[in-house]
Computed example of a mutant assay.
Amino acid sequence: MNIERHKQFLLRKERILDVAENLLLENNQQITLDELVIELDIAKGTLYKHFKSKNELLLELIIRNEENILALSKKYNNDFKVYVPQYMLHHLLAPERTILLHQIEENLTMTESSLNHLFDKLYQIRQDRILAIKDMTEVYLKAHDSPISIRDYHSYIWSLTYGACLLLNSSFYQRSIGSRKKMINLYVNQALSLPTHHFSLDDDWPAQSLIADQT
C-alpha cells in the first residue's frame, strides 16, 4: 500500500469510528453494521477491511479515546494542576461519551475473549498514561504532605469524574443542577483539593465504624 492509499485508508477508518460513535450516542448504544454502512454509504466489505467484527470496532472506539487521553497526559505532564482540569474536561464536556465507552468496555470484558490483543493494547495505553503523569502526581502529593498513594489518588479522580458524568448526563439532574459550568468547576476543584485535607489513613472514620458494625 503506497503512502497516499494508506493515508486514505486511515482517514476512512477515522470516519467510520466517528459515525459509529455518533450512531451509538443517538441510538442508546444500539447499532448494527447494516445501519453503519448505510449511514457511511459504503459496502460492508469495505467496512470489514478495517474491522473484522462489530465488537472489534467498539473496542477500537475505546482505544481511540484512551489514545486521546494519553496525548493530553503527555502534553500537560509538567504541572498536575493544569493536567487534572484537562483530563476531567475531556470527560465532563462529553459525559454521554464517557458513560457509553465505559459501559461498552464492561460488556466486552465479560463477553469477548477473541480480542485479547486489543485489550492488551488498551491496557498498555493506560499504563503509558499512568507513567506519563506519575512524577508530577508524586510532586503534587508531596507538596501537600498527603498520605494518599499515587494509585489511590488517580482512582479517586476517575471515580469523581465518572460520577460527575453520570450526574451531568441524567435528565432529572439536568433540570435541577443549574449551571453546568459551575458544577464542573466544583468537581475539578474537589479533585485538586483532596491532598490538601490532612488526615491519617488510620483515623477511625465513620465509614470504618459502619463497616465494623456490620461484621
Rank of each mutant, 00 (worst) to 15 (best):
L17Q: 14
T196Y: 01
P195G: 07
Q208I: 06
R15M: 07
D41F: 03
T137Q: 04
R175C: 06
N55V: 06
Q174T: 10
S113F: 08
F172P: 00
V188M: 01
S159C: 06
H90P: 02
I157W: 01
H50G: 07
N77E: 13
S114I: 04
T109H: 09
L61R: 01
K49E: 13
N116C: 15
I62H: 00
V82G: 09
M183E: 11
Q214P: 00
Q190V: 00
D145V: 12
T111C: 01
I3C: 00
L47R: 04
L101A: 02
L122R: 13
T215Y: 07
L10P: 01
F119P: 08
L93A: 01
L167C: 12
L167F: 14
L70Y: 09
Y162D: 02
D135Q: 13
H144K: 14
R12D: 13
Y87N: 14
N28E: 11
M183N: 10
K182V: 02
A43M: 09
Q86Y: 09
L17K: 06
R12H: 09
Y123G: 05
W205S: 14
S146H: 09
Y76L: 04
L40D: 08
L192M: 12
S114F: 06
K182I: 06
L57T: 08
M136S: 11
A20E: 03
Q86P: 04
T111A: 05
L93M: 05
C165R: 02
E138H: 11
L23R: 10
Y48G: 09
R15Q: 11
S73W: 03
L167I: 13
G45C: 05
D79R: 15
H154R: 14
Y140S: 09
T111V: 09
T111D: 06
